[in-house]
């Protein structure tokens, strides 16, 4: 969701952007946030929803601010992020290696296609009971779910990326006597990189979802477990504060991944010949 500018006329005489807006989008966005918080504040205040079930926004935000000063809170964030990071890393490495091997051989591509198409849609949460059986409430449970879910996201993108390699470029490389390693490094990898980044960005979001899910359902350590504890302990405002915190964490991860993607691909766009469609 990038910034939006209207171009009413695309005519020759009017190529330049015409911004009629007097109010910048950031201000509108801020208004949106305030309206949302306002409604949240009013719902329990007007008795539309019981305050025990939905504490007013002000109370939740105060609790969240208090959380920010607590070591226990940051420990939980750290545990969630640790599972997120390790899971994502392992999934990316596995998917990258397997994706390259499969993608570069048309025989392997065809032979694995049906298996991949069959395994991919299996919901990762189906593995929850197995994870509990194998690892209990340890971090490995989180990792198993995260790796399984992210692996497919990244693998598919890597396969797309390798398939996108220009035949002419590949033949050129071959005719100049590039070794297989050089071909991977200088032809395949650069073509695939944007796809890989897309896969990692999608995988990062999925990894957070599964980290929180595992903590919430299985009870492996992290923010999700804290949410579950707050809920069963009746600390409702605390529960909402933690939920807001996971949302903020998600926003940060999304922004961070987009930033990294931009950085890594900025020098790259010309190489790839970004299609502006």
């Amino acid at each position: 969701m990038s910034t939006v500018t209207t171009t009413p006329a695309r005519g020759k005489g009017a190529r330049r952007k015409t911004t009629k807006a007097k109010v910048p989008n950031a201000v509108w966005g801020l208004i949106g946030i305030l309206v949302f918080l306002g409604i949240w504040e009013l719902l329990p205040a007007l008795g539309i929803v019981k305050a025990e079930y939905l504490p007013p926004a002000s109370e939740v935000l105060v609790t969240l601010a208090k959380d920010f000063t607590l070591t226990a809170f940051w420990l939980a964030v750290g545990e969630t992020m640790l599972a997120w990071f390790i899971g994502l890393l392992v999934a990316v490495l596995l998917a990258l290696v397997l994706g390259l091997v499969i993608g570069m051989s048309s025989f392997l591509r065809r032979a694995t296609n049906s298996t991949i198409e069959f395994l991919r849609p299996i919901p990762s949460v189906a593995l929850i009971p197995l994870a509990v059986l194998l690892f209990g409430t340890k971090i490995e449970s989180s990792l198993m779910l995260i790796i399984y879910a992210c692996f497919w996201q990244v693998l598919i993108q890597v396969l797309y990326g390798v398939a996108d390699v220009d035949n002419v470029a590949m033949q050129t490389a071959r005719s100049y006597g590039f070794s297989p390693f050089q071909r991977i490094r200088d032809v395949i990898f650069p073509t695939m990189l944007p796809y890989l980044m897309t896969g990692i960005r999608l995988g990062a979001a999925v990894a957070l979802i599964l980290a929180i899910t595992a903590e919430l359902i299985i009870g492996s350590p992290g923010l999700g477990k804290e949410i579950q504890l707050a809920q069963s302990g009746g600390a409702i405002a605390g529960m909402y504060a933690l939920i807001v915190a996971t949302g903020l964490l998600g926003v940060l991860i999304n922004l961070g991944m987009r930033l990294i993607e931009k950085r890594i691909l900025s020098w790259h766009v010309s190489v790839r010949g970004e299609n502006i469609a």
Binding site: M1, G29, L54, A205, L216, G224, I236, G247, G250, V251
Partner: peptide, 25 residues
């Protein structure tokens, strides 16, 4: 423009945390 940041937040919120909320509501 108004809804973008709020919607971005909800997109980023891991959906499973909605379960305890909706259990209450």
């Amino acid at each position: 423009a108004i809804t973008e940041p709020v919607f971005e937040f909800f997109r980023a919120l891991p959906p499973p945390v909605l379960i305890p909320v909706l259990m209450l509501l």
